[in-house]
Simulated scan of single mutants.
Amino acid sequence: MKVQWNGVYPALTTKFTADDQLDLDLFAHNLEAQLSGGVEGIILGGTLGESSVLEVDEKERLVKFAIEQVAGRVPVVLNIAEGSTREALKQAELGEKWGADGLMILPPMRYKSDHRETVTYFKTVANSTSLPMMIYNNPVDYKILVTLDMFEELTECDNIQAIKESTRDVSNVTRLINRFGDRYKILCGVDTLAMEELCLGAHGWVAGLVCAFPAETVAVYKLVKAGRLEEARQLYRWFLPLLELDIHPKLVQYIKLAEAEVGIGSEQVRPPRLPLIGAERERVLGTIREGLANRPELPELDAVAAH
Rank of each mutant, 00 (worst) to 15 (best):
K112I: 04
H248R: 14
E32D: 15
L148W: 05
F122H: 05
G201W: 05
D101Q: 03
P249Q: 13
V218E: 00
Y142L: 14
Y9E: 01
T47K: 09
K90W: 08
E82D: 07
K256A: 06
L31Y: 11
A306D: 06
H307Q: 11
E117A: 12
D141P: 03
T17E: 06
V146Q: 01
G201L: 07
N178S: 09
A260G: 08
M150A: 04
E196I: 08
H29W: 03
A212W: 10
T14L: 06
K222N: 05
P10W: 08
D25P: 04
L301Y: 09
D169I: 04
L274W: 15
E50S: 08
T118W: 06
P75I: 04
E230Q: 15
G189N: 06
P299H: 12
T120H: 15
G38W: 10
A66C: 12
D169H: 07
H307A: 13
I288N: 09
L22F: 07
R281I: 07
Q34F: 02
E230A: 00
P249C: 10
W98K: 04
K97I: 00
P275E: 12
L148I: 13
V206R: 05
L106M: 14
C199L: 15
I277G: 13
Y254E: 01
Q161M: 14
V56I: 10
L242V: 07
L257K: 06
K185M: 02
V190G: 05
K250P: 01
V173M: 02
L276H: 10
K185Y: 07
L187W: 03
G265A: 05
I80N: 02
R110H: 15
L274Q: 15
Y254A: 03
P10A: 00
L54V: 02
L240S: 06
E117S: 15
V39F: 03
K123I: 00
F151K: 00
E87D: 15
Y111H: 07
V119F: 06
S36V: 15
S128L: 03
T14S: 11
R73T: 01
R283K: 10
A232W: 10
A66L: 00
Q161D: 07
L251T: 10
L22T: 11
F151P: 01
V170L: 07
V220W: 09
E259A: 02
G46D: 11
K15P: 13
Y142D: 12
G46F: 11
A305R: 13
T155N: 07
G38P: 08
P75Y: 03
Y236F: 10
P249R: 08
V70T: 09
G204W: 09
R86N: 13
E297Y: 12
T167A: 03
F122Q: 03
L298M: 02
G201A: 11
Q34Y: 04
A66N: 11
G181D: 06
R283S: 05
S166I: 00
V77F: 10
H115E: 14
A194Y: 07
I288T: 02
K64D: 08
G38D: 12
Y121T: 00
L176W: 00
E40I: 00
L229A: 01
N6M: 06
Y221T: 01
N172G: 11
I160P: 06
H248N: 12
L301S: 05
L243Q: 15
A33K: 14
T155P: 07
E196P: 02
D23K: 05
L89E: 11
R283L: 10
P10T: 08
L12R: 11
A202L: 03
E60A: 12
I264F: 08
I43F: 15
G201R: 03
R281A: 10
R183G: 08
F16R: 05
P271N: 08
